[in-house]
Design a protein around this nucleic acid. Structure first.
Length: 207
DNA sequence: CGCTCGATATTCT
DNA sequence: GAATATCGAGCGA
């Protein structure tokens, strides 16, 4: 395993994976949720005047819509909390929940929709695993679950609204690995819209 | 491994 | 005042 740089399993060096541009997110929210599987979520953490790269492969997502989705924070219209869901696509929507946790979403919707976001439910850690473990206070489960993803990558409310389509951003998403198949299920922890099958899990991620 | 349960504070009604 | 897009501890198998 190498230190720093772009860590992939292949022996051949490869150029930096491309940062996903705005147009990637301008599509049906559930399609973007599927397309995000296998992509690399990169967090550039500033520590001791250095940039520490924390990254992982997106393994599980959920889509949240608008009027079509009673489980969505956007369902009842704009509020202070959910305003990012109504804003530009390709930005973060980070909210605080259950008195303890942050959840990381990426805004995504087609041109004709007013609100939508994709919740990142889990990633497979790639770079900066040691730092992530520290940020997680050495808990057992590193990045499985939305609250854990946020904590492992040190993402908080401060990042709400952040544009993630810039390579220079503290947080960005990049081309990544191949996903052989996708499991589709109902979403976790919702009490309304329970039958909407908008949870997506990557199967057999590979190069 | 699985299940149940309490913590916790922001947001919305 | 109620609900919540959750987590981890504790327990049993």
């Amino acid at each position: 395993m190498s230190r720093g740089g772009y860590l992939f399993v292949t022996s051949q060096p490869r150029s930096a994976p491309k940062c996903l541009k705005r147009s990637f997110y301008e599509d049906n929210t559930e399609d973007v949720a599927k397309n995000l599987l296998g992509k690399i979520l990169l967090r550039r953490l500033i520590s001791n005047r250095r940039i520490v790269r924390l990254s992982g492969c997106i393994a599980e997502t959920e889509a949240y819509g608008y009027r079509n989705d009673p489980a969505s924070h956007a369902f009842s219209g704009v509020s202070i909390r959910n305003s990012a869901m109504f804003g530009e696509v390709g930005c973060l929507y980070v909210y605080f929940t259950y008195g303890k946790h942050f959840c990381v979403n990426v805004t995504a919707k087609n041109k004709h929709t007013e609100a939508g976001a994709v919740l990142i439910r889990s990633i497979m850690p790639i770079e900066g695993v040691g730092r992530m473990r520290k940020l997680r206070n050495y808990s057992k489960n590193l990045t499985l679950g939305p609250g854990r993803v946020a904590e492992a990558l040190a993402i908080t409310k401060d990042h709400n609204g952040l544009d993630i389509t810039l390579d220079s951003s503290e947080i960005s998403v990049h081309e990544g690995l191949h996903v052989r198949d996708i499991i589709t299920t109902r979403r976790v922890g919702v009490s309304k819209g329970v039958d909407i099958p908008w949870r997506f899990i990557a199967v057999q991620i590979r190069n």
